[in-house]
Design a protein around this nucleic acid. Structure first.
Lengths: 109, 109
DNA sequence: CAAACATATTGACATCTGTCGATATGACAG
DNA sequence: CTGTCATATCGACAGATGTCAATATGTTTG
């Protein structure tokens, strides 16, 4: 479970502004951790490329089992990186680009 | 050990350009993984804030043992995020901001 | 060279993480 | 309401990761 609301801002000014507090470091790390996996990066890129994607296509697209993909998608949603929308029996996922922009704003820019 | 030269570019065009290849996803994930730890983020922010920092100050600054800090610094250097310079018996670390910029370029911007 | 000191490496350990098969949950169709 | 299909959760397990004490390596100074 997420420790903060996924829609809330991540944490802090750019890294070089000053030393990161422990709590801020943990918050930022949790978002980066969600991104720091090859399968999740592939999922994000697939979803970002097509604008939105049905979960049903993703296990085949990344070569992983349905439970594994579901697990990864949950982590990305919890981290505020993806949005999930239920349409009938299908779940559609889309990118929250603002979230990636926030990460960038902290890393540099 | 790093699988690619740390000074080489990370991998790829922005995520939304198209689906990420498995190899590119692994490369990018390895850099993000180096960032995705609270202690390492604190180290990076400390070093980024002061321009450069002696390893000798860092264990106290982050509240971890010397071997633990050394381990984290190594991961950051291997990922191409920090530069290491030996000065006498001291090791000084500085940020390779280009590396963070590369990450940003892939995530958005 | 030897002593002193800074940093890195080793070894051990508990915890976290990615993975899958099996199963539960939830949504529609009939 | 029952069956069917899509997705999520559970349980288990192997492998990765963060941590520290002990020790090795390397650098400077006497």
């Amino acid at each position: 479970m997420a420790t903060t609301e996924p829609t809330a801002d991540i944490c802090c000014p750019p890294l070089s502004t000053g030393p990161l507090q422990t709590a801020d470091a943990e918050t930022l790390a949790s978002v980066l951790k969600a991104l720091a996996d090859p399968v999740r990066l592939q999922l994000v890129s697939l979803i970002a490329s097509s604008g939105e994607e049905c979960a049903c296509n993703l296990p085949a697209a990344v070569g992983k089992s349905q439970p594994t993909v579901s697990h990864h998608l949950r982590q990305l949603v919890d981290a505020g990186i993806l949005d999930r929308e239920q349409r009938g029996k299908w779940a559609w996922f889309s990118l929250r680009q603002e979230r990636l922009d926030e990460v960038c704003a902290i890393l540099s820019c």
